[in-house]
Design a binder for these strands. Structure first.
Lengths: 201, 201
DNA sequence: AGAAACCCATGACAGATGTCATGCCGGCTA
DNA sequence: TAGCCGGCATGACATCTGTCATGGGTTTCT
């Protein structure tokens, strides 16, 4: 019997996934959590075999949870389920020791199968997401460029970005200009959206 | 027995919701769809009592589906389930004749209850979403301002917006300037994000 | 040690953008 | 019918941004 921890902020979906997984004879949902912190706390107590975690949750990122789990509870395999699969997330997730990565568009059969796969020590990444990640390629942005571009995401003017990044406005403009060049965008806002779509920021 | 049509592009969630709803004695999921168009086509054949539709789907917006359903199949009550509840969506949905509006964070009990409520001719809107919609208030933007601001969302330069809106660049700048003033933003990108968050565009 | 990145900054210039005044037209309403 | 609002446009001006050249500092790799 594989003991599963389920974390998703959407109650409806969490409950539903639990119902589906419980239909399988060899799977058992032993705990549920609605936030990343809750998932972490629960996992330490319950010590599940597999953690199925939603990527986007109110507090902690699913990847952060996975990272914490992999250090604090190495016997537990983590897999991520997500609605919006961004290439960058996949990369970060794999780096964080995640063993399975699926979009929520998969069927419940696949979900159950992947739970078994990761529990057996295997890995599984949704083919479509994998293809996207490969085509997206590595981020050409330097760390600072990514920082600044991230601050630019909300549309703030350069002076505010400079203040928030503790940089001079001129430097910010240089980074942004470089990022705009690398992304092929025509201004920083487009560049920011582009980088976001690629999962670079 | 209440006959339900379920539309959601996320296979996992759709299947799971179907499983949950089927647990109720008086509810029966008679059809499922993964896209808006599919939902519409299926509904005409199956003629369900209640349609439970996801707000965001690849092709047709959930609200558009609701609108189409309310004219082509007036005997079918429509309710919308969504992950990201924007105030503007709620308003549009109600205008389109939607009878129920819930976030996916609700429990399955609530979902089942609401299905029964709308089938009985009642209405139900999640209290939190309703409060948000009220606090967001009406859009102060004129229709054209909203149009132009929407085109500005992706960060395109003004010339491109002008082309896409078939307006002169000067006019576009005027509308944007006006919108920036109304939203209290410091540039169009911020204004666009603000308006988006309020559901105004 | 030297080359090659990256980080940070400044200054200058051109082009994009935000703001304002002004005007014309059409529809709605008092 | 006169006024008001919104749609559409132009021109002028100040400011913001994007680009480029330049330079000094640090870290990393060869």
């Amino acid at each position: 019997m594989i003991r599963i921890l389920l974390a998703d902020d959407e109650h409806l979906i969490r409950g539903a996934m639990a119902a589906l997984l419980s239909l399988e004879d060899d799977l058992e949902v032993v705990a549920q959590a609605a936030t990343g912190a809750e998932a972490l706390a629960t996992a330490r107590v319950v010590r599940p075999d597999v953690a199925v975690i939603d990527l986007q949750m109110p507090d902690l990122d699913g990847v952060s949870v996975a990272q914490a789990l992999s250090t604090h509870l190495p016997t537990c395999s983590t897999m991520i389920v997500t609605s919006h699969g961004r290439p960058g997330h996949l990369k970060r997730a794999l780096a964080a020791g995640v063993r399975g990565f699926l979009p929520k568009t998969v069927s419940s059969d696949v979900l159950a199968t992947v739970v078994r796969t990761v529990h057996a020590g295997g890995r599984y990444v949704d083919p479509a997401l994998a293809a996207e990640a490969i085509s997206a390629g590595d981020s050409p942005l330097t760390p600072r460029e990514a920082d600044v571009l991230e601050l630019a995401l909300e549309g703030a003017p350069i002076d505010e970005i400079a203040r928030r990044a503790s940089l001079s406005p001129g430097t910010v403009r240089n980074y942004l200009s470089s990022a705009v060049g690398k992304t092929g965008a025509s201004n920083r806002h487009e560049a920011a959206r582009f980088a976001r779509a690629r999962g670079w920021i």
